[in-house]
Computed example of a mutant assay.
Amino acid sequence: MRIAIVTDAWHPQRNGVVRVLASLCGQLERLGHQLLVIEPGQFRTIPCPSYPEIKLSLFVAAGLGQALHDFAPDAIHLATEGPLGWAARRWCLDRRLPFTTAYHTKFPHYVRARTGVPLSWPYALMRRFHAPSAAVMCPSPSVRRELAEWGFVNAVEWSHGVDAVTFHPQAKDFVDLPRPLFLYVGRVAVEKNLPAFLSLDLPGSKMVVGDGPARAGLMKRFPQVHWRIANGDAELSRYFAAGDCFVFPSKTDTFGLVMLEALASGVPVAAFPVPGPLDVIGDSPAGVLNHDLRAAALAALDIPSASCRDHACRFSWERVSAEFLALLAPTGRNAGNAG
C-alpha cells in the first residue's frame, strides 16, 4: 500500500509524537508498504511562538499538493493539526478524497496553559479540523471519551507501542547519585506540570532528562535537581534504566509514551490517576496512581522490575501498526489524478 503521512512534528524535534510516527513508519516499511512523509524539513519554516523548537511551515500548499499528486497514495493520514495538516486537509477536501487524522496532543489544554483562553475556543478549532476525517485516531479510551464529550463524533481508539529492544533493563551505575533515583524523561514545558514532581519531599535524588522552553526557569527554581540531556537513544535508554522510579506528573498527555519506555526499562511508574496514566498503567502491577504523587512515588519503589517489563511488552508496534492499517480510508488510487 502507498501511504502518505503528513505531519508538522518530525525530526529533529524530540517529543512523543515524533517517536510514535517514526516507530510507526519503520514498522510499516518493514511490512513492505511505501511511505511518503511530508514534514517541515521540506519547507521554509519559522519558530513557533513560545516554543522555538517546533517549526511552523510556510507557503506549503503548492509543494504539498504536488508531492501528494505525484505519489498517488492509496491512503492519506494527517498526523497533526499544524500548517501542513491544514493544507493537506484542504487538498483532500477539494478533491473529495477521504483521509484519516490523529489526536496526539491536547492542543486546547496547551493553549489554555499558555494564554488562559477558555478551553472551548481551541476545542472548536480542533473539532473543525477533524470533522471531515474518516477516523480520528486516539491513543487511549480516555482520550476518545474526552473527545466525545467535546462533540467529536468520529474518534476511534488506536494505541501506541514501545521499542522494547532499545529500552530494556540495564545496570543502574550509569548514574552515580544517592538512591533512590526518582526520574522524569521528556519535554520540559509548562503543560508537563513538572513542579508537582520537583517540589516533592523525597529521599535520594531527583533527575530530569530532557529539554524544552521551561528548562532554564525550572533549573533556577529547583537547583537541587539533577538536569541532563541525552544524546541519542542509546544514552537515553541508559538514563531510563538507571532510575528507581519514573515520576510522570503531567495531567494533559493523551498517552505518555515515556511511561512505556520506563516500564520497558524495568522502572516502575508513579503518576496521577488521569487520562494517559490510567490507560498505560491502569490497574496493572507496573505502577502506582495516586492523587498524592509523593505517596505514589514511594510505593512504586517496591514494584519488581520484571512486572514493569512484562506490562510494557504488551504494547507491541506490530499490533499498533496492524490497527493503524485497518483504520485507514482508501482513496481509490485516484489521488494522483485529481489535479
Score class of each variant (00 low, 15 high):
Ser23Gln: 00
Gln170Ser: 03
Val320Ala: 05
Leu31Asn: 15
Leu119Val: 04
Arg228Phe: 14
Cys25Asn: 08
His109Ala: 01
Gly243Thr: 13
Leu327Glu: 06
Leu84Arg: 03
Leu93Gln: 11
Ala124Tyr: 00
Met219Ala: 08
Met207Gly: 01
Leu64His: 00
Asp94Val: 15
His226Val: 08
Arg96Pro: 06
Met207Pro: 03
His33Lys: 03
Asp176Ala: 15
Val117Asn: 00
Ala306Val: 03
Pro122Glu: 02
Thr254Asp: 08
Leu35Lys: 01
Asn334Cys: 15
Pro83Gly: 01
Gln27Arg: 13
Arg309Cys: 05
Ala164Leu: 10
Lys172Tyr: 02
Leu200Gln: 08
Pro277Gln: 08
Leu24Tyr: 00
Ala72Cys: 08
Ala131Val: 09
Ile229His: 03
Leu119His: 04
Val117Thr: 01
Asp201His: 07
Val185Asn: 09
Ala214Gly: 12
Asp74Ser: 13
Val320Gln: 14
Thr7Asp: 00
Pro132Arg: 09
Ala135Ile: 13
Phe255Asp: 05
Leu31Ala: 14
Trp10Pro: 04
Gly82Ser: 04
Ala155Met: 04
Leu293His: 06
Val185Ile: 05
Val136Thr: 04
Tyr110Gln: 07
Arg95Thr: 06
Trp86Gln: 09
Arg228Pro: 07
Leu289His: 10
Trp158Val: 14
Thr115Gly: 12
Tyr239Gln: 15
Gly204Glu: 09
Asp173Pro: 07
Leu97Gln: 13
Pro180Gln: 03
Leu21Ser: 06
Leu263Val: 08
Asn334Ile: 09
His69Ser: 15
Asn290Trp: 00
Ala296Asp: 07
Gly32Glu: 00
Ser321Ile: 15
Leu257Met: 11
Phe222Trp: 02
Arg238Asn: 14
Leu278Ser: 10
